[in-house]
C-alpha cells in the first residue's frame, strides 16, 4: 500500500493541544480534586456534579455555551479581549480553554479517587513529623496517589485527542490553528478521500492503543498499592 500524500499538520496540532490541555488540567484539576476529597462543605456534591457535567452533556451543547462564553462579548472572551486585544473564539488558546472544560472530569475524578484512597491518616503522620501542608502534599500524598496522576494524564490526554463536537463549535476548522485530527478525518470523509481518512484513523487508533497498553503495564508495576 502506498502511503498517501499526507498533511501532518492536524496530527501535530492535536498533540500540542492535548499536551497543553493536560498541563492546564493538572494545574486546575489537582486543587479541585483535593478539595473534593477532603472537604466537609455542603457544596461538595454540587461541585462534583458540575465537574461531571461534560461526561453526560452532548459536546455540541457544551461547545455552544463555550462559544458564547469565549466570544468577544462572552463571560471569558470579553475580559480576555479587553486584556489582550484579540478574541478567543477560533484560536488555539480558545481551544485549550474549551478542552480544559471538556476533559475536566477525566482528570478530576481519578485524582479525587486517589486522594480519597490516600486519606487523612498518612497526612496527619507527615504533619506530626514536622511537614507543612504543602510539604506533605508533595512528599506524601502525591507520591502515594501516583496511579491517580497517571490515569488522569492518560485519560485527559486521550479524551482531548478524540474531541470533535466542542472543537468544531469553538474552533471552527482553520488549518494550522484549530484544525485537529478528528476534524481532518471528517473532512477527508466528506470529500470521499477514504485512503487519507483510513490512514489518520489508524494512526489515532494505534497510538491510543499503545499509550493505554503502556499505562496499564506501568500501573501494574508501580510499587504503591493504595486503593
Amino acid at each position: 500500500m502506498n502511503i498517501p500524500e499526507m498533511d501532518w499538520g492536524p496530527l501535530w496540532l492535536t498533540m500540542q493541544l492535548a499536551g497543553v490541555t493536560v498541563v492546564v488540567l493538572l494545574l486546575v484539576g489537582t486543587p479541585v480534586a483535593w478539595w473534593l476529597a477532603f472537604t466537609r462543605s455542603k457544596f461538595r456534591t454540587l461541585i462534583e456534579a458540575i465537574v461531571a457535567l461534560p461526561i453526560v452533556l452532548p459536546p455540541t451543547v457544551l461547545g455552544f455555551y463555550l462559544l458564547v462564553a469565549l466570544g468577544p462579548h462572552g463571560l471569558i472572551g470579553g475580559p480576555w479581549k479587553d486584556l489582550t486585544g484579540s478574541a478567543l473564539s477560533f484560536t488555539f488558546t480558545g481551544l485549550v480553554i474549551a478542552s480544559t472544560f471538556y476533559s475536566l472530569p477525566f482528570v478530576v475524578q481519578p485524582l479525587h479517587g486517589a486522594f480519597e484512597a490516600v486519606g487523612k491518616k498518612p497526612l496527619e503522620a507527615a504533619w506530626s513529623l514536622g511537614a507543612s501542608r504543602l510539604d506533605a502534599f508533595f512528599t506524601v500524598a502525591s507520591p502515594m496517589a501516583v496511579r491517580g496522576y497517571l490515569s488522569a494524564v492518560v485519560l485527559g490526554f486521550a479524551h482531548t485527542l478524540g474531541e470533535f463536537g466542542v472543537v468544531l463549535m469553538v474552533g471552527g476548522n482553520i488549518p494550522g490553528v484549530t484544525k485537529v485530527l478528528s476534524i481532518a478525518i471528517y473532512d477527508h470523509v466528506e470529500v470521499l478521500e477514504y485512503t487519507q481518512a483510513h490512514f489518520l484513523s489508524a494512526v489515532l487508533l494505534i497510538f491510543s492503543f499503545f499509550i493505554l497498553a503502556i499505562v496499564y503495564t506501568v500501573n501494574r508495576r508501580l510499587p504503591i498499592q493504595v486503593s
Binding site: K121, E124, A125, W127, P223, I224
Partner: peptide, 29 residues
C-alpha cells in the same frame, strides 16, 4: 499547628509511608 508543636506521635496503625524505604521513613521527620 501540629507541625510546629514539638511532639512525636505514634498512631495505632503505624502509618508508615509506603512509597519510601524504612530508612527514608525514619529520616522523614
Amino acid at each position: 499547628p501540629v507541625d510546629r508543636r514539638r511532639v512525636g506521635v505514634v498512631f495505632q496503625e503505624a502509618r508508615l509511608f509506603p512509597h519510601l524505604t524504612v530508612t527514608q521513613n525514619l529520616k522523614y521527620g
